[in-house]
């Protein structure tokens, strides 16, 4: 177990490092000049040259990479060009907002999608399932910005019961959470349905039923228990993706998370900020994946981590 954990941690570190290195090169290959973005309107060549020199942008890519690695190992991710503050600190200011929104959205998704998926599976291919099918397909089809704007119009303007933007009150969490969760609920509920339909048709369910196990236990303990791993994997993957920022929703709701920060960093070619964001979000994403993997044996005793099947 410990060996497995160490190996996975090593893989995680390598994954984050390779991601960071790839991003380091790619952002420098993209068009645009951070000096021009930083200098303000109508800069002179002299201004630009001074700024490039100040931030080491006049050095070769290899030298910049070397400096970046050297600073990285001392915990210095550089100073954000646009915030004039340590890039890591700027990202850390935003991370709690992103974690809050992502956690709330995934919790709402799990709370709604799992029972809904189970309900649909119990009524698979019946007329009663049709309505739920339509709803979940609609949820998958509607773009999140449209859902966001509709929710804003109704609950912030027509019936102003919730804040329109930002996170100044607890109510400010409701609309972005619902917006993010709609698509996820549709996807996860359909996944739960598919897994549950297969599980409910399995021989062990038939045997258990013949032994007089109640339908409730059959559904929630036997079938759902055996469907839990793919569902948890999907929830974890969606959660990890949200930690990289739900850009559109953050923009629509003025949510001060990592996604909108990345957009701004890309627009201003703020390399240190882009790199710090990638580091933090990639680390969070691999951590979540690791936790999910560690949870498998808890959900299914047949799974033994670090041992071949």
């Amino acid at each position: 177990m410990i060996r497995y954990l160490l190996r996975r941690l090593g893989q995680s570190v390598l994954t984050v490092f390779l991601t960071l290195s790839t991003v380091f090169v790619l952002v420098r290959m993209a068009p645009g000049d951070p000096a021009a973005a930083l200098a303000g309107p109508n800069p002179t060549s002299e201004d630009l040259a001074r700024i490039r020199e100040q931030f080491g942008l006049d050095e070769s890519l290899l030298t910049q990479y070397w400096v970046f690695l050297r600073d990285l190992f001392t915990g210095d991710l550089g100073t954000s060009y646009s915030f004039h503050a340590p890039a890591f600190d700027v990202v850390l200011d935003r991370v709690p907002y992103t974690i809050t929104l992502s956690a709330a959205a995934i919790a709402l998704t799990a709370l709604v999608a799992v029972p809904l998926g189970v309900w649909m599976a119990r009524r698979a291919d019946t007329k009663r399932e049709l309505g739920a099918n339509v709803l979940t397909i609609a949820g998958q089809s509607m773009p999140d910005f449209w859902i966001g704007v509709m929710l804003l119009t109704v609950f912030a303007v027509l019936v102003p019961v919730l804040p329109a933007s930002g996170f100044t009150t607890w109510g400010g969490l409701v609309l972005p959470t619902v917006t993010v969760a709609v698509l996820q609920m549709a996807l996860i509920s359909r996944l739960v349905r598919r897994e549950m339909v297969a599980a409910l048709a399995s021989p062990y369910i038939t045997v258990a039923r013949s032994r007089g196990v109640s339908e409730r236990a059959l559904t929630w303990r036997y079938a759902l228990g055996n469907s839990a791993i793919p569902v948890l994997t999907a929830l974890g993957t969606r959660f990890a993706a949200m930690l990289n920022g739900v850009v559109v929703v953050e923009v629509v709701f003025g949510w001060p998370g990592v996604g909108s920060l990345v957009v701004r960093a890309l627009e201003t070619r703020d390399y240190p900020l882009i790199q710090a964001t990638v580091l933090v979000t990639a680390a969070l994403a691999v951590l979540v994946q690791l936790l999910i993997d560690l949870a498998y044996p808890l959900l299914d005793p047949r799974v033994r981590l670090g041992k071949a099947a």
Binding site: V157, P163, A164, G254
Partner: peptide
């Protein structure tokens, strides 16, 4: 005075309409 950064113009419009 409370100063907020609301980058999206439509969000700022909604927020001023709602009194936020």
């Amino acid at each position: 005075v409370r100063v907020r950064f609301v980058p999206e113009e439509s969000s700022r419009v909604v927020a001023v309409r709602s009194g936020e």
